[in-house]
Design a protein around this nucleic acid. Structure first.
Lengths: 206, 206, 206, 206
DNA sequence: GATGAATGAGCATTCATTCAT
DNA sequence: CATGAATGAATGCTCATTCAT
């Protein structure tokens, strides 16, 4: 499974095998039953270890959720950076952002589904501060990417608050629909039209 | 408060006052603490009645959540229908859908916030069937509205699966950001650009 | 049992029967196994009710301990006040304090044993403030009783800090020994010599 | 700190440094949080060793508590014996007992505080037998010291059960008050009056 | 000897729901 | 109809102790 690879990137080495097993089991449970309804016992059964061990490695349930969430965030960021590299224009970068997003969700549907349902839990839980921090960093990074002097005119006319929603809103909406089974076609099938739509939306704002 | 009016439309009359009080208290609690963390006792304290009374009127916690959720759904549908009335072209209808959505969320932030967090709970709970039913009806309705023979060409080239996301994705994305405090400007402030972006997105798909 | 009477004085009426039953069972358990080792389940079994009911009536384990502790404190205070009434001299009052203490411990060994082991727990737990309050009141009361103008000379020469220990120290020491089985004779058997010793100690301090 | 010296007397040599560190850390934890609430992990953090090491040296938590308790007992006995040496009369010996007690508690408040709270735990735990044994020895010793033929008359009239409380009760009471912060003056400040009170109490018993 | 990952029984507490009054 | 005492299964979490490395 693709999750295994993500986890191995994040927690490499033989000694972290158990950590990866626990996270993998937790992800499956959270997606099956939801965050709150999943019990530590559910996870324990699925990865065949002891309750104490789970707590030994992740502190508590919130810690487990946060570890998984940041894991997804990191992997998504890695791929986004890859896609943006080598783009020259603002238009190409907007397209890269859309493509990166759609490809990642298509490749990691489990993590993506988890991310959607865990966002608010992490944002309110004890790891809220770290999440806010990472979000700030990501936003700064994205803003830098789009600050292209040549095409600044195009983007400058769009209100800063609105820009992220214009770029990623439709892609995210479709991904939600796909993950909840309301549509069948995998997100990356619509990469082209969604990237074009994003750029057209920006243009329409002028 | 705006919620009071929505509740009075849904549960009119003096005799339903207690019902409205309970729903109002429940909404506040759910938004404050989240769905699962809110206890019946929390709600009871907030509307100063007895546990038994809440169960008498709504059966159980899921019933309470469903009542509130369908209440939001109905009110949103009512406004959407109002906005679409009198529109002649597909473009005008797309704009009406976007405006209706943004205006409703701006007017009922509490209900909107609840709706976002309760969707998956209702979709999995004992009222899943009714929810699916209502969603089907809404989708059929929207499809009828957009089936304008004259402009069919424009829309026909857009994959059916993608259309809803193209129309409402960006608006929804911005509303989520507003409800979680990530942006300040109320959604209806961007009604114009978001409606234009939706139509431009459709055009870009051809 | 004597405890029943104490509890009926503190929680009178038929409707409080369950409350009394729970407290009575808790007292027995705490004395049998110690404070920490006693589980709510132990208590539940002993009074044949449900866990939830215990929490319904006392909030939590600390609440149960505090209720029992303050019950003992109140009963002891009541008897002390009775004994002091009608005494005319400081000497008679010192004797009354000693007699009251010894008679109470002899009559309520269970409560007394509990009191010794629960004191520090209550003093550190969430009811510390109320305990401090009650202790202040008791100290003020005792100081007033002993502020006899005629015999002030005798007591005035004793440092305030030392006085309580001089009066009650030996009696308390013997009661501890009795409650832990190190001696056999009931405390009230030594009321006379202990009262005389207390007064002699004060005299020896001049 | 004074505890270090006591521990070096009890566990001398360089090789026992770790043992002393563990005991020192344990004492601090037990006094900070109480016996039961203190975890092996708390102690481990404070002396920066491993869990396994603590178990290697003391067997288990009870062993740790017992080691600390007997350490206090031994040190107290040593000082008591010192003080009694060279006394000729029963009165002088009673005074020596009182002085020894007050001086030791004043010098070792940490150990004394621990001793008060650990007594019942040790008396009920797996080291109960050894504790009973040591208590018996101490009592026999004290009885021998006080069996002064010349002044036997004075003491003989006091019931054997009552004697220890008469001698040490007030001192102990004051020490408890000091250790729990209810009074400020260090116990040894009242050595003279408390020794006189003890002897006067005995005299008052005739 | 030293380490700390692993174990798992056990506990306080919560909370949706019922039902006698 | 309304009330709130009573129920008890279920859960997150702790912690003394063991043992492979």
């Amino acid at each position: 499974m693709a999750i295994q690879e993500v986890l191995e990137r994040q927690y490499p080495g033989r000694r972290a095998q158990l950590k990866r097993d626990i996270l993998s089991a937790a992800l499956a449970c959270f997606n099956d039953k939801g965050l709150e309804p999943t019990t530590i016992e559910d996870i324990r059964v699925r990865c065949d270890t002891s309750v104490g061990n789970i707590y030994h490695h992740f502190g508590n349930k919130d810690g487990l959720i946060a570890a998984l969430y940041f894991c997804a965030l990191d992997d998504q960021a890695r791929q986004r950076t890859d896609y943006v590299k080598g783009t020259a224009s603002a238009e190409a970068r907007v397209a890269a952002l859309v493509h990166a997003y759609l490809d990642w969700v298509t490749a990691e549907p489990e993590l993506a589904r988890f991310q959607f349902q865990a966002r608010s839990a992490v944002a309110q839980g004890p790891n809220a501060a770290e999440l806010a921090d990472r979000n700030r960093q990501r936003n700064r990074q994205v803003r830098e990417w789009l600050a292209d002097p040549e095409q600044l005119g195009q983007l400058a006319s769009v209100p800063m608050e609105l820009l992220p929603s214009l770029i990623i809103g439709q892609a995210e909406s479709y991904c939600r629909a796909w993950l909840s089974g309301r549509v069948q076609s995998p997100p990356d099938r619509f990469s082209e039209p969604l990237a074009r739509a994003a750029w057209a939306s920006i243009a329409a704002c002028r």
